[in-house]
């Protein structure tokens, strides 16, 4: 098998006294969608922050296509779609401006866009179905469209590994289907997606594999292997077949 797109090995992260991740190890091969499941406070966002190198683990290593996080960032390997609460939706930027921010790593020091950057942005908008909304202010979009705008930013960036934190929170079924379609298209291009979600019902639909997280990796495998009633009961305190778990 080729090298893993995401390889997390023995990662332990602490915030002061709070142990957020303990000896977390798993790897995801390239071209897969991996669901990251866990309750509030199970460490999903912490894991994402560690993977992009915002947090340095106390122990353990992260590799993205074989590179440590700093090198992977410098090469534009990682794209990050933030949790909705982390975004200032009233910020005076348009959709096209946000997507253009994905290109900054490819530009000169003043980040002046060139033709190639404009083309990449137009293509990313097209693929996420946002071309007609390109000149809207970012907050003047529906929940699903907002998510797609950030996905478009990652596409324009050319990221090979994508981290999406709760992309389906506050998104209706129709929008969710559109996003899933976009994500599948990206996977079919050989990109790797790590998607945290509470929406257990949709996991078997669009994930190739799933990681159940509760400070440690409780289970990792095909979605139907991971989403067994016992494991869900252990991790979420709910039975199988339940919709949203929190």
């Amino acid at each position: 098998m080729t090298e893993a797109a995401v390889a997390v090995d023995g990662v332990t992260v602490r915030y002061g006294d709070v142990l957020a991740l303990e000896d977390v190890a798993f790897s995801v091969p390239a071209g897969r969608i991996c669901g990251l499941l866990g309750t509030n406070g199970s460490g999903k966002s912490t894991l994402f922050r560690t993977v992009i190198g915002m947090l340095t683990p106390e122990r353990g290593t992260v590799r993205l296509h074989g590179h440590p996080p700093a090198r992977a960032r410098a090469r534009g390997v990682v794209g990050y779609v933030p949790q909705a609460e982390q975004v200032d939706w009233a910020f005076p930027v348009r959709v096209v401006d946000v997507v253009m921010m994905g290109r900054y790593g490819h530009m000169g020091p003043t980040r002046r866009p060139r033709a190639a950057d404009r083309a990449a942005v137009a293509d990313a908008l097209e693929r996420t179905g946002l071309t007609d909304l390109a000149h809207r202010q970012i907050g003047a979009l529906s929940g699903g469209q907002r998510k797609r705008a950030f996905v478009a930013r990652g596409i324009a960036q050319g990221a090979r590994v994508f981290l999406l934190d709760e992309p389906f929170a506050g998104v209706d079924k129709g929008s969710e289907a559109t996003i899933v379609e976009v994500l599948r298209g990206m996977r079919d291009d050989g990109r790797t997606l790590l998607v945290s979600t509470h929406d257990l019902a949709s996991v078997p639909d669009f994930c190739d594999e799933a990681v159940l997280l509760q400070q440690r990796v409780v289970a990792h495998g095909r979605p139907e292997e991971v989403l067994t009633p016992q494991r869900l009961l252990a991790a979420f305190g709910v039975g199988a077949g339940t919709g949203r778990a929190v």
Binding site: G53, G76, G79, Y80, Q86, V87, F91, M101, Y104
Partner: peptide
């Protein structure tokens, strides 16, 4: 020279970090 980077920092420092 730096206004675009500063605006990116103001809007989304995590993305700024993620792209190096």
């Amino acid at each position: 020279f730096k206004h675009r980077d500063i605006t990116l920092f103001a809007f989304d420092p995590t993305h700024a970090h993620a792209i190096g």
